[in-house]
Simulated assay, not measured.
Amino acid sequence: MPSYDTALYPMEFHVNGERRTIRVRAADTLLYILRDNLGLTGSKSGCDNGDCGTCTILVNGLPQKSCLMLGVEAFGQHITTIEGLVNSPVQEAFVQKQAFQCGYCTPGFIMNCHGLLNVHPDANEETIRVWLESNICRCMSYEEIHKAVKAVFTGSRKS
Rank of each mutant, 00 (worst) to 15 (best):
Q98R: 14
P121S: 04
L70I: 11
G115M: 10
P107C: 05
A123M: 08
G61M: 05
S45A: 14
G42C: 07
T80E: 07
A123P: 13
V95M: 06
C113P: 06
H114F: 06
V59Q: 10
C55R: 08
C105M: 10
K97M: 14
P89K: 03
G108F: 01
H120D: 15
A99L: 10
L85G: 04
D48I: 14
S66K: 04
G103P: 03
N112C: 04
P107A: 09
T54I: 07
I82H: 00
G103R: 11
T80A: 08
E125W: 07
G76D: 10
K97Y: 15
P107Q: 03
F75E: 15
F109L: 08
K44S: 01
N118A: 02
T80R: 13
Y104K: 12
Q96H: 11
T106K: 05
N60P: 05
I82G: 00
V119H: 00
N49E: 14
Q96C: 11
G103Q: 03
K44P: 06
L70K: 09
Y104F: 15
C47L: 06
M69L: 15
N87T: 11
G50F: 12
M69N: 08
V95E: 06
M111C: 13
G115T: 10
H120M: 13
E83N: 09
S88V: 03
L116T: 00
G84K: 02
N118K: 06
C113D: 07
I82Y: 04
T80V: 12
V59L: 09
H120N: 12
L62Y: 04
I57P: 00
I110K: 03
G61W: 08
S66Y: 00
C55L: 05
G50A: 14
N118P: 03
H114R: 03
E92A: 15
P89D: 09
K65L: 12
M69Q: 12
T80L: 09
K65Q: 11
C67K: 02
G115Y: 04
Q91A: 07
G46R: 05
D48V: 11
F109P: 01
P107T: 06
N60E: 10
S88N: 02
K44H: 15
L116H: 01
Q98F: 15
G103K: 11
N87W: 12
S43P: 05
L58A: 07
K44Y: 05
C67V: 02
A123W: 10
L117Q: 02
L70Y: 13
G103H: 08
I82C: 03
V59I: 14
I57L: 03
P121I: 02
T54M: 10
Y104P: 02
P121N: 06
T56A: 09
N60L: 07
A74W: 07
Q98W: 14
G76R: 15
N124S: 00
P63K: 08
G115S: 09
Q96D: 13
V59D: 05
G46S: 04
Q101I: 03
A123N: 09
D122M: 13
Y104M: 11
S45H: 12
I79T: 00
N124E: 02
H120W: 15
Q77I: 08
L62A: 11
L85N: 07
L117M: 12
Q77H: 09
L85K: 10
N49Y: 14
C113N: 09
T81H: 10
